[in-house]
Write a protein that binds this DNA or RNA. Structure first.
Lengths: 137, 137
DNA sequence: ATACATGCAAACGGTTTGCAGAATA
DNA sequence: TATTCTGCAAACCGTTTGCATGTAT
């Protein structure tokens, strides 16, 4: 993989936008300092970086994929109320991994952890402090 | 919801194709006895039937949605090796539900069970009896 | 008669891809 | 110079939608 300014800026964008940005959020961000960049280039580079293991691509059913600079295996919840896309706490992640292990032993089916996405209601919204969907993404 | 021949045939197709058919599989199936039906009509009816609770629409990340005549809450695994789309055994489903309960108590996050899709390797393929992807869907 | 349903084709939204030209090594 | 990368625009694929017509109630 040869150096390119665009790729560097894209990687920086993913790192600086802590909140699991989508491709077009990254596109808008990078375009501030590099107005001529194209969305196709953003996607191409995100795919390459994901393949190289420098970031994670998180597929989202029925909406835009997310990208994560944290490449350590972990799980996410997308809140149906406010749209927030948050990491699950580590203890919960461990429980999930244990469950997948048990499933394998009990059924012979191997579940891929990176395929597991959670949808539901986040902490804040479950507690009733509803924020509007526009605050988040 | 007013009666229509198309809807009846679509519902029959979902019931007779035990294996969680996709919209276009249903389309091809119904077209055998009703060649003039359109794919748009199939989608419209599947959506209505899902809304009425007569079937389940199962969103699949990055590929075609599936439809299931079994409306009782249950979970699915899609096999990355052979493409099979299978129900998880009931004991496993119960364990998953218990886990979601625990997550709620521990974190205050509410996970929607119907959002949970599993990808991985099915029993047969884990055991090494790999079938090819074309055998299944 | 009046909703509601249909077939068709066009639109949609997120993502990928083919191409000619530009940048890296 | 030989590759790799870019910007652009068009293609892609599953799904939805607008419209004029047809059909159940």
């Amino acid at each position: 993989m040869r150096y390119s300014k665009q790729r560097e800026q894209i990687m920086n964008a993913v790192r600086s936008q802590g909140c699991h940005p989508t491709a077009d959020q990254i596109y808008k961000f990078v375009r501030q300092e590099h107005p001529s960049i194209s969305l196709g280039t953003v996607y191409r580079n995100l795919n390459q970086l994901a393949e190289a293991g420098e970031l994670l691509r998180i597929p989202i059913c029925g909406s835009k994929d997310r990208f994560d600079h944290n490449t350590k295996a972990h799980f996410h919840l997308q809140c149906a109320a406010c749209g927030a896309f948050v990491d699950l706490p580590e203890e919960v992640s461990e429980e999930i991994v244990r469950l997948l292990d048990r499933i394998r032993r009990q059924t012979g089916m191997t579940v891929a952890p990176e395929s597991m996405q959670f949808q539901g209601i986040c902490q804040a919204c479950t507690a009733g402090q509803k924020r509007s969907a526009v605050d988040n993404h």
